[in-house]
Amino acid sequence: MRVEYINPFVESAMSVLKSTVSENVKRGTPKLSTSINNIQGVAIIVGLAGQVSGRVVLDMSEETALNVASSMNGERLDSLDELVSATLTELGNMITGNAITKLHELGFKFDLTPPALFVGDNLRLTDNKIEALVVPLELEEGNLCINVAIKENIYK
């Protein structure tokens, strides 16, 4: 997996979270993950297709999701309702949108699917033959993980 593909997503996540959620975002130690990942209670998933295929997952606990959505809205939100869902999918949209804008400038052409939001306990994500890089991000609102799995398509 080429690091050029991954960095823009992590950088974009950091900068979008800084400007929309809170100033203090710390990047934890990245790890390469095996095929099965445990997902915390709430996951935003965006698919990638074009020159590469893969997906980006942003996952966090339900409590963190509510804290993040509350900060983005400037008001306390206590349930995963329509506004919270719209806020979280917009977060996924901004992070991936800004990242692929950067990647286009670097000459990598691919597109995004609209973000999907998954909520539930004991979610597991299985990737078939794609390595994923998981980067934990620490905020006052709680911890979240950005999980990027990309493979290049060999055909042109």
């Binding site: 400007s19 917009e90 949209n93 901004m94 991936t96 949108g97 804008t101 286009h104």
Partner: peptide, 27 residues
Amino acid sequence: ISALGKEELVKKALLLGARNFIIKPLD
């Protein structure tokens, strides 16, 4: 107003008559 700021997209919008292009997140 879009989270996507790809150059060709911005150009296309301006060619079609958009007056400006704002990239999210919104400041």
